[in-house]
Structure formats: structure tokens, C-alpha cells
Simulated assay, not measured.
Amino acid sequence: MIRAYRIVEGRNEPLDGVPSAEALRQSCWIDLNTPSTADRQLVEQTFGIELPTREEMREIELSSRLYREAGGAFMTATVLCRADAPVPETMDITFVLTGDTLITLRFDDPKPFYGFHNQVTKQSVKLENGVSTFISLLDAILDRIADVLEGAGRDVTAVARELLIEEHQGHLNSDEQHRLLKRIARAHDLTAKARESLVTLTRIIAFTGTVRELINDKALRARLKTLSQDAQSLADYTAFLSSNIAFQLDALLGVVGIEQNNIVKIFSVAAVVFLPPTLVASIYGMNFHFMPELDWPYGYPLAIALMVISVIVPFLYFKRRGWL
């Protein structure tokens, strides 16, 4: 699908249907979302470029993601998407700056693009040219990552609060432990994908700054510098968040380990407490012929009394030492 916009009398005018080659040349932004073969060929023939395939977009080499070719600057970023889903995902988006036109190639619909299209349609964001549109779109992507990281930070803080409250109110049962572990794992996965996205966006911003003929406006260079600072601050925050998540995971595993140790301690004490009566019962259960206690009229009550005393004495000793 092709969604394109051009500027008509200071307003963003969307191009309906399948735009012509002439209309595409006048556009400042062309968005290709899961394009068909015909859509790709139309854009490639109009601008004389070759768009990367989906497999080429997934390559991680820097030279495959940032390069200049046939009068266009090609930049591929890994962008966080479906952050609200149980399992967050990432997608690869290619930005192509050619002349005064920005071409974006993607195979999903992340929230930054969805929201940016709405802003452009409602005229709350004015498109001027391809470079300014590119910078505004990067700004929207960074804003979305910031919102996602803020949510992950709040979730990690909530997990820490639950661990502290449970420490005073009682033990965590297995269901609560499983639930907290899943929340920590999701926060870690979300933070890792956000950090991966920030790394690629930082590279794109740095690459764009080196293309002087693209960023020849002082105001645009200032906006690009601000984006670079924002990306760096978000990267620093992801590092802090990752360390906090690791600490909460260690704390949760520590709580689980303490509870397991308490259970093992109970079994150990029970084994030690019941060992002496087992010894008494074993001795008088041997039934040797020459055992004087077998002929005692009070031999059985005496054996029972020895068993009870052998249980009470270790129990009181452990209780006095604070082991119970």
C-alpha cells in the first residue's frame, strides 16, 4: 500500500488511490506499508532507485543498513513495535532520502507511524520537505520509545514494591512468584528491544548529520542534534533500567531461595527430631532372646516414654537456640 503526501498551498494533501509518477515526484513523503510488487516498481522507476528487499533489511552489517546509492541516502532502523502485546516485537524500517522526498519502507504498522499519519492528515503536523518529515518521524519514534520505557520503569517499581510488601505481610506463594517472574521477564525483553532500537536510531542520526547536502538548514541541524541527545539519554535510561531489572530478578530469586531454605530446614529438623525415637524403636524391635526389657511388665510404656522424651528434648534445644 502507498500513502503519499504533497504540499498544496501550505496544507498536507494526501494522494488517493494509486498515484501517478508525476504526483510521486511532487510528494514530500511516500510511505510504503507492505507494498506489492507493482507499488515497489512504481516508486523505483519514478526515482531511479532500488529499494532493499525484506531479507536485505534484516541484515545487521552497518554497510548494509547505512549507505548512499543513486542519489539517495538509505537508512534502515530496527524499531520497537507491539510494545503493549504480551511479547513485544521489533521491525525493520528503511528510510530513503532522495531529493526533497522521504520514502519509508516497512512491513508492519507501529504506533509512531499510525499516530504520525493521523497528525499529518489532521494538519497538526505540517510537512515541508523530505528531510524535515524524516526528522519529525524520528522524533515520533523516540517519543514512543520514551513512553514505553517509562511504562517498563513503572512496572519494575511496582514489582519492587510488591516484594517489599510481601516481606512484611507474608510469603510469596508459587503463583505470585510465577506472576512476578513473568513481569520481570517481559520488562527485560521490552528494555532489550528498546535498546536495540535506540542503537540503530542513534547510528541513523549520526549518519544523517554527515550528509551535509541533506541537512543544509541550520534549524534542521539543531533539531537533529536534539534528537541525538534524546536518543543518548534514552540509551542511558535503558542501561539504568536493565540494572534495576537485574536487581529485582536477583531479589525475587533470593526470596524464593530463602523460602526453599525454610522448607528444607523444617524437613531437616523433623528428621533430626524423629531420629532418636526411631533408634529406640529399632533397638526394641530387634527381638533378641536375651533382652531383659522384654520381660519387664512396664517395658512397653517405658519405651514409649523414651520415644516421647527423645522428641521433646531436641525440640526444646532447637527452640532455645532460635533454629525454629
Rank of each mutant, 00 (worst) to 15 (best):
R186I: 04
V131A: 13
L105A: 07
H171Y: 13
V131F: 13
N173D: 15
T191N: 12
T210R: 15
D139A: 10
P110M: 03
R154P: 02
D189A: 08
L180C: 05
S132Q: 12
N216W: 10
G153H: 04
T121A: 12
T104R: 10
D108Y: 09
L172Y: 05
S197C: 02
L172C: 12
G151W: 06
P110H: 05
S132T: 15
I215R: 02
D155Y: 05
V211W: 06
A146R: 06
S132F: 04
F134N: 12
S132K: 09
L127M: 14
Q123T: 05
F207L: 13
L180T: 01
K182C: 03
T133V: 12
N216I: 06
V211D: 11
A206Q: 14
G153T: 05
I165S: 13
T157A: 13
N216E: 14
L198P: 04
A140H: 08
S174H: 12
T157D: 14
L190W: 01
A185V: 08
L105D: 06
E167P: 00
R195Q: 05
T157V: 08
L142I: 05
K182W: 00
V211M: 14
I141R: 03
L190S: 01
V159Q: 00
L181G: 04
F113V: 11
L201C: 06
D108V: 10
A185T: 05
A160G: 15
D108G: 15
T191S: 03
S124A: 13
Y114W: 09
I215K: 02
T208R: 03
V125I: 12
K182A: 11
T133Q: 06
G115A: 14
L201Y: 01
V125L: 09
P112I: 08
Q177V: 11
V125H: 01
E167V: 00
F207W: 09
L181M: 11
R212G: 13
N173K: 13
R144Q: 09
A187L: 04
L137P: 03
I145C: 09
T208N: 04
H168N: 09
H168P: 00
N118I: 07
R179M: 11
E166T: 10
H171T: 15
S197W: 01
D147W: 06
E166N: 15
E196Y: 02
A140S: 14
H188L: 07
K122M: 10
I215N: 00
G151T: 08
I141A: 07
Q177C: 13
R195D: 08
E162L: 14
I204F: 09
A146F: 09
G170R: 02
A152F: 03
A160K: 07
I145A: 07
G209D: 07
L172I: 01
S174A: 15
V211S: 10
D155G: 05
S132R: 13
L190G: 00
T208Y: 04
N118H: 08
I135A: 08
R154A: 14
D143W: 03
F107T: 12
D108H: 12
R212A: 14
A140D: 06
Y114P: 00
R144T: 12
F107I: 07
L181K: 11
L214Y: 12
L142A: 03
D175K: 15
E166A: 15
K182G: 08
T202H: 11
L181T: 04
V148D: 10
